[in-house]
Design a protein around this nucleic acid. Structure first.
Lengths: 250, 250
DNA sequence: CGAGGCGTTGACACCCATCAACATGGGTGG
DNA sequence: CCACCCATGTTGATGGGTGTCAACGCCTCG
């Protein structure tokens, strides 16, 4: 793949490529072209230790990454010290698609676990759309999927109470993880602590704790460090009024 | 323009085309191609009276619209009767870009004023990206801009109090309207009532009223039916910590 | 063994929702 | 032209959901 030497880890990289190219409904015919484009343009692999923020060194030149492993948080820190997590990226997700369309965005990227990224030497501007239609389609599709996820988050933040917010977030995580084969039984394994949930749901840490307790008392879901056990998926979905269509998964 | 006869209103349509094709930084070189594509694919004009919702008749075939006149609200109604406005579209904006990438979305479109739309017979799937790169770029760019706006809204809803939320929304409206030449002096002319603000900001109508009163007492902004007078733009931006970069306007 | 991250719990305060009542103004029909 | 109505805006009283503060427990790691 490009200048990237074939190594023992290529099966993992291949898996990320498969994930990225497989889940665009209506664009199946471009799957092979996309894989070819990604391989041709892949420059190298970047490994980021857990907890480190992903800095975009050169804001002038386009940056595109394919997540191979780990969880990446996209968030905004406010002057008052508050923080809002906007979204998270998982293996198979394209990162920084906005840098191909605009200058770089005003959000922070944080590796919440050890993260492996495949760096893509993507052209920006007209060249992207004229010479790499499959890659352009993937970028557009990713932007559309992200927009859809954010629209749903706007609804959650605006018009759902804390129990509904948390339930909805858990349903979404379960669906996204399941779609990439990262669910083991009924347990969501995730690197979020309760403060992360607070900053994603727009409520306080203490209230996240109270809300998890409510879910535990009702035997719906059980929070533990590093994992959440879903014990009554049906009720969880009912509380959240969860409809997975907006994720546009296969 | 396609099967659309040249009429006296074509100067208006031309203006919408200009707006749509002009504001993609980095993609200026595709502007002319985009105008050509839009003209070639334009099918007809749809006029929707104020207050009517825009129904997508055939969810299976792709729908793409260019807003020529009026305000379109994108919202979600919840079972409990609550409503959340996710975004709004103005003249020059592309609507329903998601229908080219996925099946149709779960949100409602409402004409908040009399609305004129130019319907585009856009191809979906691989054909869009392989045969119409300029249109594909516009769709991708719109999806990216919408995502960026929604990300900012997530921050507002999650981590700003009501005064900051309202101030930020007003700053955004001023910037978006100014960019398409719809600001007259310091007055924002808009079809939002206080309930619309409530459903956009995720707070109650009554609290919207109290927050406007606070802005009026401080001589920062003055709400009237149908318009808002900005009297101290600097303080408004300061309260909102407003940075217009995320709108990606010229 | 100490320190620090994280989770848990309770007391209290406040922002904002809810409810209710009234004001205003534009539109409609008699 | 007036009476009425309905949408919208305004204001106050009250309550609940959630934030803030404080303290403590547990576990991990150095």
């Amino acid at each position: 793949m490009g200048q990237l030497a074939m190594t023992h880890s290529d099966s993992v990289a291949q898996k990320a490529l498969d994930l990225a190219s497989r889940r665009m409904p209506g664009l199946e015919s471009m799957s092979l072209n996309l894989q070819r484009d990604l391989r041709a343009l892949a420059r190298d692999k970047v490994e980021i230790p857990s907890g480190k923020s992903i800095v975009i060194e050169d804001a002038r030149c386009p940056q595109l990454y394919l997540v191979e492993q780990g969880w990446v948080l996209r968030s905004r820190g406010l002057a008052s010290g508050r923080r809002q997590i906007v979204n998270y990226a998982l293996p198979g997700d394209l990162l920084c698609t906005d840098s191909l369309l605009f200058k770089v965005s005003g959000f922070d990227l944080l590796a919440r676990t050890p993260v492996a990224l495949i760096r893509i030497d993507a052209p920006s501007g007209a060249e992207l759309f004229e010479r790499y239609p499959a890659l352009a389609a993937a970028v557009a599709w990713t932007a559309g999927q992200d927009e859809s996820i954010l629209a749903e988050r706007v609804v959650s933040l605006g018009r759902r109470d804390s129990l509904e917010k948390l339930s909805h977030a858990l349903c979404e995580m379960e669906a996204r993880l399941a779609s990439i084969g990262m669910m083991r039984g009924q347990a969501i394994e995730l690197p979020f602590n309760q403060e992360d949930f607070a900053d994603m749901l727009g409520i306080s840490v203490i209230h996240v704790n109270r809300t998890f307790r409510k879910l535990a008392e009702e035997k719906i879901a059980l929070y533990r460090k590093g994992s959440i056990e879903i014990r009554d998926s049906a009720r969880l979905k009912q509380i959240a009024a969860f409809d997975p269509d907006y994720l546009h998964l296969s």
